Simulated scan of single mutants.
Amino acid sequence: MGRLVVGRHDWLPRGAHRYLVAILRRHSARYEQFGPNGERLVCRLTKALYGLRQAPRAWFDKLKQFLVFTGFTVSKSDASLFVRLSSDHTIYVLVYVDDIVITGSSVDEINCFVHMLHNQFALKDMGKLHYFLGIKVSQSSSGSIHLCQRKYIRELLARSSMTNARSVHTPMITSSLLSKDEGEPLVDPTEYRSIAGALQYIVLTRPDIAYVVNQCSKKQQVVSRSTVEAEYQSLAAAASDVSWLVSLLTELNLSSVDLPTVWCDNSSAVAVAANPVLHSKFKHVELDLFFVREKVTRGELVVSEVPACDQVADVLTKPLSASMFTQFCRRLRVVLLEEVR
Rank of each mutant, 00 (worst) to 15 (best):
A158E: 15
T163P: 01
V168S: 14
F66D: 06
D288W: 03
S86T: 15
D265N: 14
L94P: 00
L301S: 08
C43G: 08
V5N: 05
F60L: 10
S247I: 00
F132I: 01
Q233S: 02
A58G: 08
E338W: 02
A210M: 11
R84S: 10
A273P: 08
H284Y: 07
R53L: 08
K128I: 07
H27N: 12
V203Q: 06
H146I: 03
L336P: 06
S141L: 07
L287A: 13
T190N: 13
I173V: 11
S304W: 00
C216D: 13
S267Y: 04
A196M: 14
V222W: 08
L45P: 09
P13T: 06
K47Y: 04
M324G: 00
V277Q: 15
V68E: 14
R166Q: 13
P189W: 03
F132K: 10
L301Y: 07
T163L: 15
D108Q: 09
R57C: 04
F113H: 02
L45D: 13
N275P: 06
D10L: 06
I209H: 05
E251W: 08
V101I: 13
L81C: 02
V101N: 01
A273S: 14
G134A: 06
S247K: 10
A16M: 11
S226F: 07
G299W: 13
L199N: 06
Q149W: 09
S28L: 12
F121G: 02
E339D: 11
V334S: 01
T190G: 14
S140D: 11
V187H: 11
P56S: 01
E231R: 10
P36K: 06
